[in-house]
Simulated assay, not measured.
Amino acid sequence: MTVMATTDLATSLGYSDLLGSIPVTPSSTTSRVVVNNSALRVVVFAFDEGELLTEHASPRAVVVQLLDGAIRFTVGDTEHHMVPGDVIYLAPGERHALVADAPSHLSLVMVDVAATAASGASPTA
């Protein structure tokens, strides 16, 4: 995974053709960090069919959205068959794993709950 330099929390940014710039590579999992600051990290993954991430956990809260393809995403003992547009929320420390059933792109947003709370940000919009 390529980790970009820290993204300034006070500076807005945008990306065009993100999926085109992160192609699915045969027999591979690739990723790109597109936002990285003290509050959150956004990573886009490309998985070829059959690629997997073994069970692991993050200390951050995580929001996963399938952008295209098909993925089996396991949270604890529950397997979710994700289709494009599906979203899964993971509480900090939640064990999870996945297997790509088709070439797929996945967006992962990790929120540092402690940093957000320390900044005084409201948990609701």
Rank of each mutant, 00 (worst) to 15 (best):
I71L: 07
L90S: 14
H81F: 11
A57N: 05
A115Q: 03
R95E: 14
V111H: 15
V35H: 03
L106G: 10
E79I: 10
S16Y: 00
L13H: 14
T25N: 00
D17A: 05
E94T: 12
A118W: 06
A39P: 09
M82A: 11
D86K: 10
A97H: 12
T54W: 12
A70M: 05
S122V: 09
S12G: 06
S122F: 04
H81N: 15
L53M: 09
D8H: 06
S27E: 08
V99L: 15
S104N: 08
G76R: 03
A102K: 15
L98G: 14
V34F: 00
L98K: 15
V24P: 03
V64G: 10
V42G: 06
L98Y: 15
S119F: 12
P59D: 01
D77L: 13
A121T: 15
A97Y: 09
E49R: 13
P26G: 05
Y15T: 01
M82C: 09
I22W: 02
S31K: 01
G120T: 02
Q65R: 05
V42H: 07
V24E: 04
Y15R: 04
S58L: 05
E51A: 03
L98W: 15
L52S: 11
V43M: 06
L13C: 02
P92S: 03
L90W: 00
A91D: 08
Y89S: 13
F73N: 13
D68Q: 13
V87D: 09
S28N: 06
H56K: 01
A121R: 14
L67Y: 01
S122W: 07
M110L: 10
T78S: 13
R32A: 01
I22C: 05
V44G: 00
G93H: 04
R72P: 14
F45C: 09
T78V: 14
L106C: 14
S16R: 08
D86Q: 11
V64L: 08
P59S: 01
A5L: 12
S27F: 12
A97P: 01
L9S: 09
L52V: 11
I71Y: 13
N36W: 12
A100F: 10
H80K: 04
A97C: 13
L90G: 14
D17K: 02
L90C: 12
L52C: 09
L66V: 00
H56N: 02
L52Q: 05
E79H: 10
A114L: 14
G120W: 06
E79S: 10
S27G: 03
L13Y: 15
V75E: 11
A102C: 12
A46M: 01
E79M: 11
N37W: 02
D77R: 07
G93W: 12
T54Y: 13
L18W: 03
L40H: 05
F47K: 00
L52H: 05
P103M: 11
E55K: 07
P59G: 03
R41D: 04
V33L: 13
D17S: 09
S104R: 10
D77Y: 11
V34I: 06
V34Q: 04
Q65G: 09
G14Q: 02
L19F: 00
S16W: 03
D112C: 01
T29G: 09
T11P: 07
R72W: 11
S122T: 11
T29E: 02
N36C: 03
